[in-house]
């Protein structure tokens, strides 16, 4: 990867994707500027996690392109994309720790498998990452012995193991109590200030979105409906954005005719 690359860190261009016959993403165009924190906001089932999985190439789009540092990742060979992947860390919704390994082994795994570092060096680096997320002293615990918030922190330490340039978060506060969730948010803020990483956070928590974001993108039904700074989103007059921000439930005004038709249709 060229280091003098100037454009957006990630560019999603005209992305369309289907699960079976159902269209999940509908012509998504989005730029993720380098060094900024982008929060993708949207309700459940709007395709925001799917977008994240595409950036990691865990799924392939029906059509469209995804550029990371200017390189289209979809046609890349597995080997070449693995080189790109090393610079991307991802925290999964369920933290996705390997349950058969201790926390330390989990964090050390990418270093052990992808680098030629000495065991003692790996040990030190692992400790540093665990320290960074506040899990000092939990090296020898198994994932099942940790609470939800701690698992997320451990997952984050593992995502940070290879010193990524891009960090992806899939619903970092899902399943956590508000205090623990706020703890994860402040950890993201801390990382953002300490390292100049490009961070992408997928969430439906508005409070956390406005706290950590440099830019916010609102998605609805597989489409990007607004993107801009937190100020711009807060002042947006778009009805669907307003609906989301003001937490108005879906389908308040049902058209009686429409409803009857939907019941009698085959």
């Amino acid at each position: 990867m060229a280091n003098d690359y100037e454009g957006p860190m990630i560019r999603v261009s005209d992305l369309v994707t289907h699960y079976g016959d159902r269209r999940i993403l509908n012509h998504v165009n989005l730029d993720f500027p380098a060094g900024e924190t982008m929060v993708i906001l949207g309700g459940s089932g709007t395709g925001k996690s799917t977008l994240l999985r595409h950036i990691m190439r865990l799924e392939m789009p029906t059509s469209g392109k995804i550029f990371i540092k200017g390189q289209d990742i979809c046609p890349m060979s597995e080997d070449r994309f693995n080189q790109v992947r090393r610079k991307i860390g991802m925290l999964f919704q369920s933290a996705a720790l390997f349950n058969s390994m201790t926390i330390e082994e989990n964090v050390a795994l990418p270093l052990r498998e992808l680098t030629q570092l000495e065991d003692s060096t790996i040990r030190i680096m692992t400790r540093i990452k665990l320290d960074l997320v506040g899990l000092n002293g939990f090296e020898n615990y198994m994932p099942s012995q940790l609470s939800g918030g701690m698992k997320k922190r451990a997952g984050l330490a593992r995502a940070l193991a290879m010193d990524p340039e891009i960090l992806l978060f899939d619903e970092p506060s899902a399943g956590l109590d508000p205090i623990t969730a706020a703890g994860i948010d402040s950890l993201i803020l801390k990382l953002k200030l300490a390292f100049r990483m490009t961070i992408v956070v997928v969430t439906h928590e508005m409070a956390s979105a406005f706290m950590i974001a440099d830019r916010i993108t609102v998605m609805d039904r597989g489409e990007v409906i607004a993107t801009g700074t937190p100020e711009e989103i807060r002042n947006s007059q778009q009805p669907r954005v307003l609906q989301f921000l003001n937490r108005i439930p879906e389908g308040d005004q049902v058209d009686a005719q429409e409803y009857l038709r939907s019941l009698t249709e085959d």
């Binding site: 999985r53 990691m56 865990l58 597995e78 994309f81 693995n82 080189q83 992947r85 090393r86 991307i88 991802m90 999964f92 919704q93 369920s94 996705a96 720790l97 390997f98 349950n99 795994l109 990418p110 498998e113 992808l114 593992r158 290879m162």
Partner: peptide, 13 residues
């Protein structure tokens, strides 16, 4: 539990 995705995401086959 997304562990297989996590492996792939690390670039491990």
């Amino acid at each position: 539990s997304e562990e297989i995705d996590a492996l792939e995401a690390m670039g491990l086959d």
